[in-house]
Amino acid sequence: MADLNGRKALVTGAAQGLGEGMARALAAAGAKVVVADLQDDLGAKVAESLGDGHGSVHLDVTDDTAWETAVGQATDLLGGLDILVNNAGIEITSLLIDLDADKARKQLEVNLLGTALGIKHAFRAMRGSGGGVVINVASVAATIAFPGIGVYSATKSGVDRLTRVAAMESGKLGYGVRVNCIYPGLVPTAMGAGLANDVARIGLFGSPEEAVGAVVGLTPSGRLGEVADMASAVVFLASDEASFINGVGLPVDGGMGM
């Protein structure tokens, strides 16, 4: 595993699922981690389980002021910040013909605006301090046309574009912050299981099991992803081993999106 000793990381949506796995992997690699989430009790439990030197903060990623507060708290706790993982996200399944504007707007705010605000505050915290790393979590949905997740797919495509523009701005303005994203495949977390149930519920598949089978059938590696697969990719991109990797999207999808 890459050596992240001395690094200071903030992971959003880290109270459960992929974010929790990423926080644990970063800590195992030596980083000090702040868990950021709306779920204060769960976030605090994850941070406590990581051991001394880690912590948690409340964060609504759609709120600019909340970002400023959370990054300030994390920086005070850790003595700086050089890794941000923009993981927080939501997925609301819907056929486009049944699109609900409020639910679509919520996905745009959490997935796209939340990531953009994270980049903003990471840049402000990291510029002039020797640089850092931002890792955004997009999705294989940004690269394939899977039915029932049109708005979610659009937001994750937007995360990809934000990543590339942010990397270019950081370079042009001398911030010294690398910005990359990963494209996770389907992982059987609560969100992944919910998607399988939802696409069956709206009639795209006969059952959740059929939906999962369809995803596996589209995946050359022949299986679903695991939390550890995504977490390992984040640790790699945060490490010096990835020091010349910048402005790219790394598929961690078993080949599904190729």
Rank of each mutant, 00 (worst) to 15 (best):
G257N: 13
A125P: 01
P188H: 11
E109V: 08
N86A: 11
N111L: 03
G158N: 11
V134A: 02
L81S: 02
T143D: 13
D102V: 14
L108I: 14
G30A: 07
V199A: 13
K8R: 03
L195Q: 13
G247R: 11
T69D: 13
D229K: 12
V35M: 05
V11E: 06
R7V: 05
F146R: 11
A238G: 06
A31V: 01
D82M: 00
V61I: 10
A104P: 03
S94F: 08
A214H: 15
F205L: 13
M230S: 10
G21R: 00
G72W: 07
R24C: 02
A29C: 09
V215A: 15
D98C: 12
I182T: 07
Q16S: 12
V57N: 01
A138R: 02
A9E: 03
A242P: 05
S207W: 09
A145H: 14
E20T: 06
F244D: 05
S56L: 06
L117R: 01
G19A: 10
A44G: 12
E209P: 07
I135K: 04
V234Y: 00
V235C: 08
A125M: 03
E91I: 14
V140I: 15
S170L: 06
V227C: 02
G192P: 05
G176L: 08
L18F: 08
A23S: 02
G132M: 04
S232M: 12
D64Y: 01
L237V: 06
A190E: 14
M126T: 05
A196P: 02
G257V: 13
V34D: 03
G150M: 11
H54T: 04
